[in-house]
Design a protein around this nucleic acid. Structure first.
Lengths: 325, 325
DNA sequence: TGTCGATGAGAAAACCTTTTCTCTTAGACC
DNA sequence: GGTCTAAGAGAAAAGGTTTTCTCATCGACA
């Protein structure tokens, strides 16, 4: 203990924490010695008394981490500077597992819990309301009176539509996922109001195969062909682009394509690379970290749903106007 | 405190922990009351005295979580039953960040650290030897005297080669990643000794584009064409399959293809779906969890490198013999 | 010179368990 | 009946901090 090396014991604590009254000289001396001997206050003991463990839990049902990993990165980025570490708990839509993990976190007196997931209109299979610790919902459906962070899918869809319009598309079709997803409906609605011509929305599953299939439907029927396709996610977009190429349709010259998610793995490997909407999940994670920190420090934060803006990542499948890049 | 509800205070602890001497009746009664009032022993206080925090850290530089997520799932699966939670620390090859995270974990008295990564022949940018807590290296290069878990890439490559041979391939080519990767060399070596004909290994980058390119090289030159291609990972395999399809070569009828990694996102979406080698990272994670738990409980575990077997996931790009499925 | 206030620093309580030690009581054996 | 042993249960210490309270000293002001 640094106390031995210098003067007292409780004084040392005050010196290190900048609390209490004491001469500048004493304070500096203690700090110096502490640094020299590499003194590390025991976080457990500290937590026992301060009621803060400098620990938060991230609960998610997103197995592949496609959405959770960026969120996690943002949270960690925001919190590590404050000495806060993050427990990651992956529960596969299994209420039992969720319960066990939440219990384990509560046992460890986490300062807060961030709930995350893979879709915005489904709750995690565990009730987090009424817990003794603050909860923030990030990219998952939250409790009615909770604080929730989500992407602004309508604004994102507008960005996509705008990009296609700017690229000169006259006849834009929207190929997207199942209508049961709220974000699918939101994006479709935004698309409908954003484009000039008559809207056309094709619903299917979240897979490349559906992208292919959609192209087949659109091109095998008679009538005018689209010159722009806004896809519900990057996997569908990839299927669409591949389907178009196989038919000898050039992207983006003949048909421009915009995806959604900016899932690098897919978007960057597509030929040509996809122009797509990024939900800025890392930023969303940072915000979640900021909020949970504030709440755990007792600061009041306004409950409700906050929508964070998406941004457009321009690659080659739709270039828009040069000026809009 | 449950003590009030019943009898004593220190007796309660003994009752709940199964230690000390007392009548069966007392013990049961205490347990019952504890359950009723939902008593949760404070893990911080417990940790302070037992020197165990029931907490471990997972350090990784694998940003996309492609390898770390399955490992993490395995670790968590193994440990959650023992009440152990996992700190996930993503350090992007940044020594500074690594240092900060490790310090934060040590402050919190983690019971152990599992180091993980994205390749087997690179160390994490931080020295974990000489720490006061046990360390297990899982899917990353470990310290010389540490305990390390890795996949058996040679055995995995043999599985792939065997599958192609069983499918009747006579002329098998290996299209893989950069020679600088140790696992690339190991897989290539195993491939060379496993096949009957003369080996041919094409090195490139870990991307679909390289798969395309390799097909172009193989098909645009004169001479005999391969009838089997073993790819260094699933992304390359996907590029290869796409390249073949574009040339009108049928998979698996004309050419059978086997990938590596079993990265569902890629392998299952390829047309046809990829037969590929799975490194069983989840199992590897479980094993890492088992080991770190043993070490944190003071049990001795043998140091050195342990190779865990891969397995073959048969889809449609190479069917092998019916009997070998 | 005496009193008051401010300033610096230590003593001790508190946080919540676990664990060791001690005490009491009852039963058994001589 | 007395002594010894074992069993059951509580008292108290320990674990490492933070924080409140108390104490001592010194300067200033009356």
């Amino acid at each position: 203990m640094a106390a031995l090396a210098d003067v007292s014991i409780s004084t040392a604590s005050k010196a290190l924490n900048g609390s209490g009254r004491m001469s500048v000289e004493t304070r500096e001396r203690v700090k110096k010695v502490a640094l020299e001997v590499g003194f590390r206050p025991n976080a457990l003991a500290r937590g026992l008394i301060t009621k803060r463990s400098f620990t938060i839990g991230l609960l998610t049902n997103d197995t592949y981490g496609r959405f959770t990993l960026p969120v996690m990165a943002g949270i960690s980025e925001e919190l590590v500077g404050h000495g806060v570490s993050v427990f990651l708990c992956a529960i596969e839509d299994d209420p039992e597992r969720a319960r066990v993990h939440v219990d384990a976190m509560l046992d460890k007196s986490v300062d807060g819990i961030i709930a995350s997931g893979k879709r915005l209109d489904r709750q995690l299979p565990v009730d987090l309301s009424g817990l003794s610790v603050p909860v923030v919902y990030a990219f998952t459906k939250g409790a009615a009176d909770g604080v929730t962070l989500r992407s602004d899918d309508e604004q994102g869809a507008r960005l996509a539509a705008r990009c296609l319009i700017d690229a000169g598309c006259q006849r834009i079709v929207h190929v997207t996922g199942p209508k049961t997803f709220q974000s699918v409906r939101e994006r479709a609605d935004a698309y409908r109001t954003a484009i000039d011509g008559p809207p056309e929305v094709l619903h299917g599953i979240w897979a490349e195969a559906w992208g292919h299939e959609a192209v087949a439907q659109l091109w095998d029927r008679g009538g005018e062909k689209p010159d722009g396709i806004f896809c519900g996610n990057d996997q569908i977009a990839r299927g669409v682009v591949d389907g178009l190429r196989e038919r000898g349709v050039r992207v983006p010259e003949d048909v421009a394509v915009v995806g959604f998610d900016n899932w690098e793995i897919v978007a960057a490997q597509t030929r040509p690379p996809l122009t797509t909407v990024d939900m800025n999940l890392r930023t969303l994670g940072r915000e979640a970290g900021r909020l949970i920190l504030a709440m755990s420090e007792g600061r009041e934060v306004q409950s409700g749903i906050r929508k964070l803006p998406c941004s457009l990542v321009v690659r080659q499948s739709c270039r828009g106007l040069e000026t809009s890049a």
